[in-house]
């Protein structure tokens, strides 16, 4: 459990980090909180020759809420997300989700940027970002560009981020209405057996808007557009919820692993999603 040899770099600004990455290319990896990369390096499944550590890039550590938009720097830790009352007021689902990531020690190190950029289908933040309709800012040698979370994930560990780009910030609109992040896991610290992020807004008895995304049930997070639309069209009656859940289940593709066979995960995912919808509706 000892990593291979590598050179360690600690740039002080985004341009400096981007320049380093451009220079070192394929031999370099950017490290944020390190809670995915370091275990992989200890197993020697990854053996980068250079590590570009972003912890000294101060502008990557921020949470701001203004004009109906939330902006979070990539190096903001999960503990900081949890601690921010401003963020909690503007988007309470972020704290609810963050509290279900790993354990307090991991959350002091783990960052939102690392969590969303790594492309690990087990991570909780990617589905949350799809649910929130977040935009990711990527900085590269050709400048900045923005990719929506719903377009970002291509396959396990493959994303729209170019190898020479760094994910620097995340923006999404403030939330109104009900929310829920429900997660089934074997124990504290585990990835989800199945998890669901749901945002709903209510107008009288009808559902004004809905957004659903699922974690660890395919090789990418699963944004369930049709299921979301069904709730808006048909409301939150038993039959409507049932068919929305069925629609979402049509999109997932879980695999057998130590958490259980795919068949079990499908069943558990449906239960978890129904719970999340009901909880979000109760809070809307």
């Amino acid at each position: 459990m000892i990593t291979g040899n590598f050179e360690y770099h600690q740039p002080g600004s985004i341009p400096e980090a981007v320049a380093l990455l451009s220079k070192l290319g394929d031999d370099a990896r950017v490290i944020a909180g390190g809670h995915s990369l370091i275990p992989t390096m200890k197993l020697r499944l990854a053996m980068p020759e250079h590590l570009i550590d972003l912890q000294a890039v101060k502008e990557l550590k921020k949470i701001s809420v203004s004009g109906g938009e939330i902006c979070i720097g990539a190096m903001t830790t999960q503990a900081e997300l949890i601690a921010s009352d401003e963020l909690h007021k503007a988007a309470p689902i972020v704290r609810e989700t963050s509290l279900q990531i790993a354990d307090p020690q991991v959350r002091y190190m783990g960052t939102i940027g690392g969590n969303v950029a790594n492309g690990d289908p087990g991570n909780d933040m990617p589905a949350l970002m799809q649910c929130l309709n977040a935009n990711f800012t990527l900085s590269g040698p050709d400048g900045e560009r923005t990719v929506n979370a719903r377009e970002f994930y291509e396959a396990a560990y493959f994303t729209a981020r170019d190898d020479l780009e760094i994910l620097t910030e995340i923006r999404f609109p403030t939330c109104t209405g009900g929310y829920a992040y429900e997660k089934q896991k074997r124990k504290i610290g585990d990835y989800a057996t199945a998890a669901a992020a749901v945002l709903l807004t209510k107008s009288g008895d009808s559902c004004e808007s809905a957004s659903i995304a699922l974690t660890n049930l395919a090789d990418t997070p699963v944004y369930c557009e049709e299921a979301s639309q069904q709730l808006v069209s048909n409301g939150l009656g038993d039959d409507s919820v049932k068919s929305a859940v069925a629609s979402a289940m049509g999109q997932i593709d879980p695999v057998d692993d130590n958490r259980g066979p795919a068949e079990f995960k499908r069943h558990a995912a449906a239960i978890i999603l129904r719970k999340a919808i009901q909880q979000a509706w109760a809070r809307a």
């Binding site: 074997r186 259980g260 069943h267």
Partner: peptide, 19 residues
């Protein structure tokens, strides 16, 4: 008796018929 094995027991006993 982890989650999926308990689920499997319930499944084999036909307890998921209505869910």
């Amino acid at each position: 008796h982890d989650h999926w094995r308990i689920w499997k027991t319930a499944n084999e006993l036909g307890l998921h018929a209505d869910s």
